[in-house]
Design a protein around this nucleic acid. Structure first.
Length: 566
DNA sequence: GCCGTTTTCGGCCCGACTGTTTTCAGTCG
């Protein structure tokens, strides 16, 4: 899909327009970029089928730019802008730098790159400029350091435990009556730029003191009477806001929804002659809601919207009509359908994995150690696989939760599976996935997967796109074709919960759900504590608007056995 | 540049903090 390329084109144009202090256009370009980025449909096919201009935010101007880019892979408009503005728009990503400052520094000091900026700051040239001082110069230097360290975003799976720890520390300090996570982490976005935490307290000053002196804080970035930002040892930025109880709900909403969602809500408020801000919902300057999110949504005439859906991709309209889909909840998920033990490349025994799964409330699990001839991941050969099945059978006799005999098998480049059918038939559940020849082109890869799906034992296509966040994009396949085949064959597509996989991702999940394809959730845990990643998979399912009926993990064991037996 | 249950023209979300000023622009979320 070219969606992300087009989104980048539009974001770049927006940045360059903003540098020139052009009004409103940057927002129009960004709004269209965000829509296209989050679309489950392929923008190129929309264009080919004459529906480009149906995409919200795409009108004559933006549409023409997209058409040119899709036809020629170039944008004359962007080239023109770049010629006029030779500085690197990345400069605007440095903390404290916006379009005005970037432009000003270019005019005064001919600063075009991060390197130029660093040199000028180190030589003390910036502090001499009007409007700048010693502190701004320092801030620029520390901003550059941070930009260098890693371009910012942390995997949700690593950020979430940190957030929970901070929140429970705040609670146990007794300085706050409540504290909660907001921001993109609460929306369960796969990576987060920072953590936003809200707390209710009447002793804001003391809470700030406490927050800024937590053990793993290395730097206080800013500190006001009710708002502070700190940086943790691992580079993560955490923002805390303290507020009174009557604003808690509206503030949670304000800091949870993405920008587009919040703008949409504000517009609804305006249409109803009200005003919505983080301080509450106001009518005639009087707060009429704010304590809870439910209250605010209801007073706006809409149903409560779960955090994971608050990205303005249709949820607002549905909530107004009270037609939001009931998305799957953590409590609906009865099992974990991918994990590894010492039998292949895991570090715990089957019993240890089962025990931890029981603690997490799972009713049953699938242990899915690797089998096959490929020498990756300590794969089991046929002989060992038989012993493994025997062991699971014997553990099941005394185990509190039932263990499905599962395996993860490689899909070979030809599309055949890496272990013969006579071995596969001994398993309750067979996951198939690609671990080799990852660079295959779309058509060839699609053929490979379709061929694998013809195997009657395949039940789950595991980590379907093979991507690794921040490392590789993964291969592309013709999803519509695969969806059809998956439905025909009763094969589920996996949401692999492992933090750097999250594969399928939210967007793919949504298209699978729209296509009526079943999904499975598996942590891909290689050690017992990683079974906690189940929450990430549920979050991704919810971001993709999956209902309980879309997720096979919600089936009680008996129903699951029937599903697997077909 | 986009958009429309008052509109095809005239709007486009809102408030606080920072660092620089001495009343505010720029930036951020």
């Amino acid at each position: 899909m070219k969606n992300s390329l087009i989104a980048k084109l539009l974001y770049d144009i927006a940045d360059l327009l903003e540098l020139q202090n052009v009004q409103f256009k940057p927002n129009a370009y960004r709004a269209a970029a965000r829509t296209i980025e989050g679309m489950s449909k392929d923008i190129e096919s929309e264009w080919k089928e004459g529906r480009l201009y149906d995409v919200p935010g795409v009108g004559k101007g933006i549409g023409e730019k997209i058409e040119e880019f899709l036809a020629t892979e170039k944008s004359s408009y962007l080239e023109e802008l770049k010629k006029k503005l030779p500085m690197d728009p990345e400069l605007m990503n440095i903390e404290g730098m916006g379009p005005k400052k970037v432009m000003f520094l270019y005019k005064k000091l001919k600063i075009r790159t991060m390197k130029d900026l660093e040199e000028s700051a180190k030589k003390g040239k910036i502090r001499k400029l009007p409007g700048f001082g010693e502190k701004s110069e320092q801030k620029i230097l520390s901003g550059i350091e941070h930009a260098k360290k890693g371009s910012g975003r942390m995997l949700l799976g690593f950020a979430l435990p940190i957030a929970n720890e901070i929140i429970s520390e705040l609670r146990s300090s007794k300085l706050v009556t409540n504290a909660a996570l907001a921001g993109s982490a609460r929306r369960m976005k796969e990576t987060v730029g920072d953590l936003d935490i809200l707390a209710i307290s009447s002793k804001a000053g003391k809470v700030m003191d406490y927050f800024c002196s937590m053990p793993n804080v290395i730097e206080t970035i800013s500190r006001g009477p009710t708002k502070a930002s700190v940086r943790l040892v691992n580079g993560l930025q955490v923002d805390l806001r303290v507020l009174p109880e009557k604003e808690y709900g509206s503030a949670l909403m304000y800091f949870t929804g993405n920008k587009d969602h919040n703008v949409a809500l504000r517009k609804i408020a305006i249409a109803k002659k009200m005003k919505l801000s983080e301080y509450g919902l106001f009518k005639n300057n009087k707060q009429i809601a704010g304590k809870t999110e439910e209250e605010v949504y209801n007073k706006l005439g809409m149903h409560y919207i779960p955090p994971e859906m608050r990205e303005n991709t249709g949820e607002v309209e549905l909530a107004l009509k009270n037609k939001l889909p009931a998305i799957v909840e953590r409590k609906d998920v009865l099992c974990d359908l991918q994990m590894h033990s010492k039998w292949s490349d895991g570090s715990n025994t089957i019993e240890e994995m089962a025990a931890k799964a029981g603690e997490l409330g799972h009713k049953y699990i699938a242990i899915t150690d690797h089998a096959g001839t490929l020498v990756i991941a300590n794969s089991m050969n046929e002989k060992r696989a038989a012993k493994y099945c025997e062991e699971i059978d014997s553990i099941n006799k005394k185990s509190e939760i039932h263990i499905l005999k599962g395996t993860e098998v490689n899909i070979m480049p030809s599309g055949s599976l890496d272990i013969p059918d006579k071995c596969l038939k001994n398993f309750d559940i067979v996951l198939c996935s690609v671990h080799s020849a990852l660079t295959m082109q779309k058509e060839e890869m699609t053929k490979r997967i379709l061929k694998a799906m013809d195997n009657k034992y395949m039940r789950i296509w595991a980590h379907p796109t093979g991507r690794k966040i921040k490392i590789r994009d993964g291969y592309t396949v013709d999803f519509p074709k695969i969806f059809d085949k998956a439905k025909e064959r009763g094969i589920a597509l996996e949401i692999d919960c492992y933090p750097d996989r999250t594969d399928l991702n939210d967007i793919n999940v949504r298209s699978a759900v729209e296509a009526g394809v079943k999904l499975s959730i598996g942590t891909d845990a290689h050690a017992a504590p990683q079974l906690d990643f189940i929450n990430l998979g549920v979050g991704t399912a919810r971001r993709g608007w999956a209902k309980k009926s879309d997720i096979i993990n919600t089936m009680p064991l008996e129903k699951m056995m029937k599903f697997l037996a077909h």
